[in-house]
Computed example of a mutant assay.
Amino acid sequence: MGLITPGLGLIFWSALGFLIVLFILSKYAWKPILSALDDRERSIEEALKSAEIARNEMANLKAENEKIIHEAKIERDEMLHRASETSKQMIEEAKNAASLEGAKMIENAKAAIETEKLAALEEVKVQVGVLSLEIAEKLLKENLTKDAAQQALIEQFVNDLKLN
């Protein structure tokens, strides 16, 4: 049974060694180990807090980004609407300008036609006057002393007029 139960001396020296190691550890190692564990615990807590702050900041940034994207979409839609309205307005103005220009061209053409018509009438009057002068000249050149000659000349002029 000697192998199973330790001797009194072994228990004493084991207890004494344990107490010395416990004293040395409590005196020199226990405080640095506990302070190192406390530092580690504090650093972990700080890391968790900073991670939580970063998570909150990321959530805020995400919400802000979504807000900015939404505002950008609204602004884009407004710009497209304004561009569409501007293009419609420009097209309408171009149509109106073309219509006015066409009306002006028609008025100018009517005025030119009227001017040419008046010029043509004036030329016809001039030609009628020239023909009248030629007729009068022929009448004066003819010997109008006899009635029969006058009558023949008048019939000739009447026949000439009916042909024209």
Rank of each mutant, 00 (worst) to 15 (best):
K146H: 12
G2K: 09
L144W: 00
A83I: 01
K27S: 13
M58S: 13
A29N: 13
D160I: 12
P32D: 00
H70A: 15
I20G: 09
F23A: 09
R40F: 13
K73E: 11
E114H: 14
I91T: 11
E71G: 02
G129L: 12
S84W: 03
L144D: 07
M58Q: 10
N56I: 01
L161G: 00
V126C: 06
N60V: 13
K125Q: 07
A112P: 01
L118E: 08
L34Q: 15
L8I: 14
N108M: 07
I135D: 06
F12Q: 15
A112H: 00
L100E: 09
D160V: 07
L161A: 13
W13T: 15
L80M: 05
H81Y: 03
E66G: 13
E71Q: 07
D77Y: 06
Q150Y: 02
K104Q: 11
I69S: 12
L80K: 11
L163G: 04
E85G: 04
T145E: 15
S26L: 02
E134L: 15
I20S: 14
Q89N: 14
L131T: 01
T5D: 06
K88T: 06
L34T: 06
A103P: 01
A63V: 11
I53R: 05
A54W: 00
I33L: 15
D38K: 14
Q89D: 10
E116K: 09
M79G: 10
Q89K: 07
L22M: 10
E75F: 05
S26T: 13
I33K: 10
W13R: 14
A59W: 01
L48V: 07
L16C: 14
F23S: 03
A36D: 14
S50E: 13
E155S: 11
L153H: 00
L131W: 01
E52T: 06
A152Q: 12
N143K: 03
P6R: 00
D39W: 14
E155N: 12
D160M: 07
K138I: 03
T115Y: 02
K117D: 08
L3G: 11
E92G: 06
E64R: 08
N65K: 14
A149S: 10
S35W: 11
E93Q: 13
I113S: 05
D147P: 00
K27T: 13
S35M: 14
Q89E: 02
K62I: 05
N164V: 12
K104H: 03
D77W: 03
T86K: 10
D38F: 03
D160Q: 07
L144A: 08
T5E: 09
E41P: 02
L34C: 07
K27Q: 15
K117W: 03
I53F: 00
E92R: 09
I154F: 02
E142F: 02
H81I: 04
A83Q: 08
A83E: 09
